[in-house]
Design a protein around this nucleic acid. Sequence first.
DNA 1: ATGGTTGATTTTGTGCACAATCTGAGTCAA
DNA 2: TTGACTCAGATTGTGCACAAAATCAACCAT
Lengths: 249, 249
Amino acid sequence: MKTSVAKSSLNSLTGKENAVADPDVYSRIYEAVLDHRLPPGTKLKEVPLAQFFGVTRGAIRKAFSQLAAMRIIELRPNRGAIVASPSVAESRDLFAARRTIEGSIAETLSRHITKAQVRQLSAMIKQEDTHYRRGETRAALKISVDFHRVLASMAGNTVLTDVLDQLVSRTPLVVLTYRDPAQNNACANTDHVEIVEALAAHDADRAVAAMTCHLCNLEGQLNLRDDAPPSELAAIFGLANATQQPALQ
Amino acid sequence: MKTSVAKSSLNSLTGKENAVADPDVYSRIYEAVLDHRLPPGTKLKEVPLAQFFGVTRGAIRKAFSQLAAMRIIELRPNRGAIVASPSVAESRDLFAARRTIEGSIAETLSRHITKAQVRQLSAMIKQEDTHYRRGETRAALKISVDFHRVLASMAGNTVLTDVLDQLVSRTPLVVLTYRDPAQNNACANTDHVEIVEALAAHDADRAVAAMTCHLCNLEGQLNLRDDAPPSELAAIFGLANATQQPALQ
DNA sequence: ATGGTTGATTTTGTGCACAATCTGAGTCAA
DNA sequence: TTGACTCAGATTGTGCACAAAATCAACCAT
């Protein structure tokens, strides 16, 4: 098979790292989860994945470890990995945490944002818009996520940037899990425009408000009612359900 | 040797976990780093550690992986692990991030804190104080750290709690690295009292101010001047220095 | 039917041997 | 002395075989 060939060529390209997952394996699983090709609750078996990617179980294991750190998958002792199914409470907490952190980032950045940075952000928004118009939802979504990452890195606090990266990475999974099918997610591209305008005007209050509002809008588009009385039970059921019919959804 | 005996008994107690480090190995290394028995820059070799702890290299490796995720150690491909030596900029960012997150936590908690929770926090402060009076600095420091963790969990946002846990865990390493020897670190126990009082009074603004002030005080006790012109060079030098003379510091 | 038990099969976890890589002392030439 | 080169020893990375555990279906008793 071309298993060993693919592997060795990959290694020479990327360089192996101690306890750091092969970035390709990591991102391929991550993308699959975000594409809903692997819906929440799906069991991830090591051997099939290793064979499919042409790597050893060890490589899969490392990727699992990092995906679990990002809360993209859940690692259960002796029982393998499943795609995470974030609860309603956890999803709400995630957005609340993002409001806190990104509010702070918007405030900081509004003080020392440069014109070049404003241009870069505007370019991202334009690109995002182009993808949306062409119906390339996935590409647009990716840029939309990157927009927040870039914003964080521009603010200059590396610790907050790292922390936010974890939160931003988890968000698409939440969105896909609780996206309201009735509601068309006209992703608030105008929100991003408003944020950049406020930043460019060096108006901290307005920037924070715009960011908070944007995140609230995003959360508001989701179906995050915990009305179901046995909420925990429902989560378990949904989880077991997905495990049994992973290919059907 | 009792290697295998110690290992199997440990396993039966803790239960092995997929890609999750043995908690004992993890915390023993963590404690050693925080005790400055392993100063920043120290090389951590797998085989000696494995022999010392009576576990296999695999167990050490998993612990490394998690310690690296917490930024307690740094993992360099093919070159092993060293104790992290946080830069001045990173340390400042860490405190800034904590102010953001813990400010939010204080604000949230000030709204729905219960009397029982106030009692619990007061008890922790009292215990911390007792340890300080007895000169048990290490025990006191541990409670002091836990105080912030408990505060976060009381606020109820699990995502923010997790995120803050990472930051809080890294803080002692920063403090030990940049502690000003001249300044006696009369750890601001009174700060904690003030925070709890503000929370108990349901005064959000005062609680946020108290928390921010506390973290600023903590940071202010450190020697975080980046006056050295080649700051990056200084970091590298300090790092290499520590690597070569790990036992002397 | 329902609940519990057993055992074959699948899946995850781990130890070890070997491969790949790095380190540092030694050598030599400029 | 400085710099480049080489090579032995030390250290990290990985694949595989085996061990441990969970799963699932079949079976039995109630």
